[in-house]
Write a protein that binds this DNA or RNA. Structure first.
Lengths: 221, 221
DNA sequence: CTAATAGTGTCTATCAGACAATATGGT
DNA sequence: ACCATATTGTCTGATAGACACTATTAG
């Protein structure tokens, strides 16, 4: 039995074969039910990242925000370039490099019905499972020294609230007292002066992230 | 006066405009004369990274090694993907995304006459100066916690020798005694038992990197 | 009362920066 | 003798992990 596939091809004005297209794929993650989850859309009988083709004269950033919004309703988030995947055969449609991006968003920001959150990665199209694995690794590395998790907590939050989110991302439990002592020293958050209740226990001091824009903790050598 | 340019275009078998090509650009750096230097080739009246087009059915990695070797004679090095640059207008030849790579190599490995080392970045073509800036930042971040600098020292080296190389990369002086005390603790090198002279002073213990393959220091949280 | 969350304190081990002092080679 | 490199040691302050203990709220 022979497997037949339709592949797209392309040729440039000099007569050489060229990529059939350029796609962008956002790996958008959230923390929901105490777990790190990834935003995927249905793609035939499998699932895929909510990306798509870049148009001529469009920057990859424009394209990735546009596909993400039209397919899932997620907008106004920060996406950072992760890596480009262009191994031959990765995309069965043809020679189509994919530039992957990462971002975090509150799970409630999902508006359109096409997107769904997954904590276990289902079968994916276009080799998207490798991209997701890389994305999780990258996000884990940035949690301690940058304000990446900001979109996952309210404007004001307690340190316990923040700790639960970080625990979900890194996948391990953290000592609450050490976390309260140490995290504020990273220079990413400040006390607001307000109190805030999280769960049933004693209300705690409310904190804010210093900046809504991407920011690294000071004093990394 | 109107500036006229030939631009390459492409169309795929579905009738849509597609990238005119895909290029790969290696940022190969060395330490020479106590300075971090970048390998560039002449490109008309400017300079550029020794990269080029990816062929159909070729992986970007194959392509980047092949262009690097044919243009500069540099071979057998490790290249790591840095970032992809695809802003419209970046490459005046047309819609041509560039996947950039980084690598380090001993300056003596340059064989072909087309390549040259630069410590000050000259005027570059195709927006390559931005790529070079990003590459330098990335390499500086990896020096402490990985064995990236291995290609820049002999098989066996003294800690002072290694320190000079790292100083050149990060651009600051390091305390010799603290460096000898601390660097071996990172778990990337081991004493060989031999002695080695570097410069005119007292001979020191010779060290080797544990692995020739890319490796991170253990115990990063 | 108990359970849940918040916060302080304490102890120890490790690490980083500054820097003194000594050791071993060349010229 | 003097310079360059190598190495050990010492001090101090910061940091991280483990963990005891207290504080404040809901139910």
């Amino acid at each position: 039995m022979v497997l037949v596939r339709m592949t797209i091809t392309a040729e440039n004005s000099e007569g050489y074969a060229s990529p059939a297209g350029l796609v962008v794929d956002p790996v958008v993650m959230t923390v929901k039910a105490g777990e790190l989850q990834v935003l995927l859309i249905r793609s035939g009988d499998r699932h895929s990242l909510p990306g798509g083709f870049v148009l001529p004269d469009q920057s990859p950033e424009e394209a990735v925000y546009s596909h993400l919004e039209s397919k899932t309703g997620v907008r106004g988030i920060y996406l950072e370039q992760l890596k480009t995947y262009a191994t031959p055969g990765r995309d069965e449609r043809g020679w189509i490099p994919s530039i992957a991006y990462i971002g975090l968003v509150e799970s409630s920001k999902l508006l359109a019905g096409d997107g769904e959150w997954f904590s276990e990665i289902p079968e994916t199209a276009y080799g998207h499972d490798e991209i997701i694995t890389d994305a999780i690794e990258r996000i884990r590395g940035k949690v301690w020294t940058s304000n990446v998790v900001r979109p996952l907590v309210p404007e004001e939050f307690t340190l316990g609230e923040l700790r639960r989110v970080i625990e979900a991302i890194v996948g391990t439990e953290l000592d609450p007292s050490n976390f309260t002592r140490d995290f504020p020293n990273a220079g990413l958050v400040r006390k607001t002066g307000n109190k805030r209740r999280f769960g049933n226990g004693r209300p705690g001091a409310a904190y804010r992230f210093l900046s809504a824009d991407p920011m690294w903790a000071p004093t990394r050598r």
